Lab assay of single mutants.
Amino acid sequence: TDCSIVSFLARLGCSSCLDYFTTQGLTTIYQIEHYSMDDLASLKIPEQFRHAIWKGILDHRQLHEF
């Protein structure tokens, strides 16, 4: 599957948040998979999107835990 942040955000309906990640040089889900809610806040992601992205990260982690 596509591991880009572009497609990750698109699946979550949060494509408008892409610039918050790319300006930090973040391009793949693996770069953010251990981010906390505070990390997302420090990227200045608007609160209404933060929870959806956080949930997406948690779902991603569960899929990749062996």
Rank of each mutant, 00 (worst) to 15 (best):
C17W: 02
G13H: 04
K44P: 04
Q31R: 02
L9P: 00
E33M: 11
H34L: 06
F49M: 13
L63P: 14
D59T: 06
K55P: 01
I5R: 00
P46V: 00
T27N: 12
T23Q: 14
F21G: 00
H34R: 12
I57F: 04
V6N: 11
I45L: 11
S16I: 07
Y35K: 05
L9T: 00
Y30N: 10
L26Y: 05
Q31N: 05
T23N: 14
T23M: 14
S7L: 05
A10T: 05
D2I: 02
K55G: 09
D38P: 06
E47T: 11
S16T: 08
Q24V: 10
Q62P: 05
E47D: 15
R61S: 11
L40M: 05
T27V: 10
D59F: 07
S15W: 04
G13K: 13
R11P: 05
G56L: 01
L9V: 02
G13L: 02
I29N: 01
D38N: 08
A52C: 13
Q31A: 06
D38T: 11
Y20I: 14
Q48V: 12
A41V: 14
H64R: 13
M37R: 11
T28M: 11
Q62D: 11
Y20K: 12
L18Y: 10
W54N: 11
G13E: 08
G25Y: 03
A10Y: 04
T1S: 10
F8S: 01
T28E: 12
K55Y: 07
D19Y: 06
I45Y: 01
P46Q: 03
D59W: 04
L9A: 00
L18Q: 14
Q31C: 05
S15D: 08
M37N: 05
Q48C: 08
S16M: 08
R61E: 10
D39S: 05
I29T: 10
A10L: 09
H51W: 09
V6R: 13
A10C: 04
H64P: 12
Q31F: 02
F49G: 04
I5C: 01
T1R: 04
A10W: 04
I29C: 10
T1H: 03
D38Q: 12
F49T: 05
L43N: 02
I45F: 03
W54T: 06
W54V: 07
Q62C: 10
S4F: 05
L18T: 14
S4K: 08
F21Q: 00
L58V: 14
L12Q: 08
R61C: 08
I5T: 02
K44R: 13
H64Q: 15
G13F: 02
C17R: 01
C14E: 03
F21K: 00
T27L: 07
Q48I: 09
S15N: 11
A41E: 13
L26E: 02
E33D: 12
L43D: 02
R61G: 08
S4A: 03
I29M: 15
Q62H: 13
A52V: 13
T27P: 01
L43E: 02
S15P: 07
C14H: 05
D19P: 15
Q24A: 12
C14F: 06
I53M: 03
F49E: 14
L43A: 04
I5N: 00
R61N: 10
P46G: 03
C17N: 03
W54I: 12
C14A: 13
T1M: 10
Y35T: 03
Q48W: 04
T22F: 06
H51K: 13
H64M: 14
H34C: 05
F66M: 15
H34G: 13
E47P: 14
D39F: 02
R11Y: 04
H34F: 06
S15E: 08
C3V: 05
S42P: 04
I29E: 03
D38S: 11
D59Y: 09
I45Q: 00
R50L: 11
K44T: 09
H60R: 15
C14R: 04
M37K: 11
E65M: 07
D2S: 06
H60A: 13
S4M: 09
T28S: 11
L40H: 01
S7G: 10
Y20F: 13
